[in-house]
Design a protein around this nucleic acid. Structure first.
Lengths: 150, 150
DNA sequence: CCATCTTCGTTTAGGGGGTAAACTAATAAT
DNA sequence: ATTATTAGTTTACCCCCTAAACGAAGATGG
């Protein structure tokens, strides 16, 4: 058991802790040179929400509002985002995607889908895909509860 | 199959692309407030090598030498690293851990081991652990070959 | 009704990460 | 000996982040 645990630790470090950068580099797509992964994630969240406030974005991405403020300025300058004043509370604002923003999100989803498809179809058997899903569902739920517990 | 692929994409994004930060936060250990994960990874590599040059470190961490130069300065200032002049080539230098550096690496390994142990023992059955190892071995090898291919 | 408190979002200062190109110093090569 | 190559550092500029100060709008309560 100890040996297995040691291997698990090493693999965990390699894949989860240090793997993200390698994965993103491996996309080799212009998209990741133009936009940071934090920006792309933000666009994706906005896309799913339709319209959303900076405060909620900060909570969803797990960062301070000031970080969102900064990101918004950059993406707004590039023409991907706009603000739709919310009616009731003049303090808050609602962020939405522009047409260009929608295009970027669509391209992003396409690129990721293709990449994961390649990995899955080339390197995994049918049965391993099921294992992959089981393990990753579990990891995902662990990440969520640990993040929320705080 | 399409449905499975879609779920795989979502889980992949959540765990691999955006999960690292949440994982690191979940450690809730002072270590991760004092040192960045890049710094800790660098210390670990040096620990395994005994002594190593900045150039090799840059290659292993997949960044430019200037990034290593910068990291070295910070860790040297904190008393974790020193330089042992290499005998033959006066251009190169060999970096090693100080006693304090060794202590930090030992603590780091301990913290990670415990954390992964908790996850594995609490949330995975014997059989799932084997699945975990299989899937992650594969992901690890994919990361390596893709990184090297470039 | 006006003063205070809270909330939303932005700004500023400072520290983490990174790259690319210029530069120094030492070894190799012609 | 002179030129090229290699190792590492420095500089300038970008990204990320947090924490604290700040302005403006809503909510509370005397």
């Amino acid at each position: 058991m100890d040996k297995k645990l040691c291997e698990a630790v090493e693999l965990f470090e390699e894949v989860i802790m240090y793997g993200t950068e390698r994965i993103i580099r491996s996309f080799e797509h212009q998209l990741f040179e133009e936009y940071s992964s934090e920006q792309l994630q933000m666009l994706q969240i906005i896309s799913k929400s339709g319209r959303i406030s900076p405060g909620k974005l900060a909570a969803l991405q797990g960062v301070h509002k000031s970080a969102i403020s900064n990101r918004y300025k950059k993406l707004e300058a590039k023409g991907l985002l706009t603000t739709v004043d919310s009616e009731k509370d003049l303090r808050g604002k609602a962020i939405t995607l522009t047409q260009k923003g929608n295009d970027v999100v669509a391209l992003f989803n396409e690129v990721i889908y293709e990449h994961v498809e390649n990995i899955v179809l080339n390197d995994f058997h049918e049965e391993e895909i099921n294992e992959f899903l089981r393990i990753f569902r579990k990891l995902s739920s662990i990440l969520k509860t640990e993040g929320d517990a705080k």
